[in-house]
Amino acid sequence: MTSSDSTLPRTAVPDGITDPVASARAELKAALAAIEVKGNVPRRLEKASQRGAAKARAFADRNPAGAVAAAVGIAAVTGGLVWAIARAIAR
């Protein structure tokens, strides 16, 4: 492996492969990596929730009053939805 290989993403096929067998293997390896990245929903959800939590922390650091207002608003909407669903089920 060269130093440039370490900068390529797992889903990329390196340039300069002249051997057809090595090229096919590299393409297959990249395709399988892309399928794994795209199909691994729990990992994607974990990364998305980590990004969201980081954004929420940054927002709370910049604007504490806005963060409190957002939390109260989210709680009110969630409570309203739970109440509406419970009422619909009770009828």
Rank of each mutant, 00 (worst) to 15 (best):
M1Y: 12
M1C: 14
M1T: 13
T2P: 01
T2E: 01
S3T: 14
S3M: 13
S3L: 13
S3V: 12
S4W: 11
S4E: 11
S4R: 12
S4G: 08
S4C: 07
D5S: 06
D5W: 01
D5E: 10
S6N: 14
S6P: 06
S6H: 13
T7V: 12
T7M: 11
T7F: 12
L8K: 04
L8R: 08
L8F: 02
L8H: 03
P9G: 03
P9T: 06
R10E: 15
T11C: 06
T11R: 05
T11V: 12
T11A: 10
A12T: 03
A12H: 04
V13H: 01
V13N: 01
V13I: 08
P14S: 02
P14W: 00
P14C: 01
P14N: 02
D15W: 02
D15F: 02
D15H: 05
G16W: 00
G16P: 00
I17H: 00
I17M: 00
I17T: 00
I17N: 00
I17D: 00
T18R: 00
D19F: 03
D19R: 03
P20F: 08
P20A: 10
V21M: 07
V21Q: 08
A22Y: 04
A22G: 10
A22P: 04
A22L: 12
A22M: 13
A22R: 11
S23W: 04
S23V: 05
S23E: 07
R25F: 02
R25E: 06
A26P: 05
A26K: 03
E27I: 06
E27F: 04
E27N: 11
E27K: 10
L28Y: 10
L28N: 12
K29D: 12
A30I: 05
A31G: 08
A31F: 10
L32Y: 08
A33I: 08
A33P: 04
A33M: 09
A33Q: 06
A33V: 05
A34P: 01
A34R: 07
I35T: 04
E36H: 13
E36P: 06
E36K: 15
E36R: 14
V37N: 07
V37R: 13
V37C: 04
K38H: 10
K38A: 14
K38G: 06
G39C: 09
G39I: 05
G39K: 09
N40K: 09
N40Y: 04
V41C: 12
V41S: 15
V41N: 14
P42M: 05
P42C: 08
P42Q: 10
P42H: 07
P42A: 07
R43E: 15
L45C: 13
L45S: 12
L45H: 13
L45Q: 15
E46P: 05
E46T: 13
E46F: 12
E46G: 11
K47V: 06
K47D: 09
A48W: 04
A48N: 11
S49P: 02
S49N: 13
Q50W: 06
Q50P: 01
Q50Y: 05
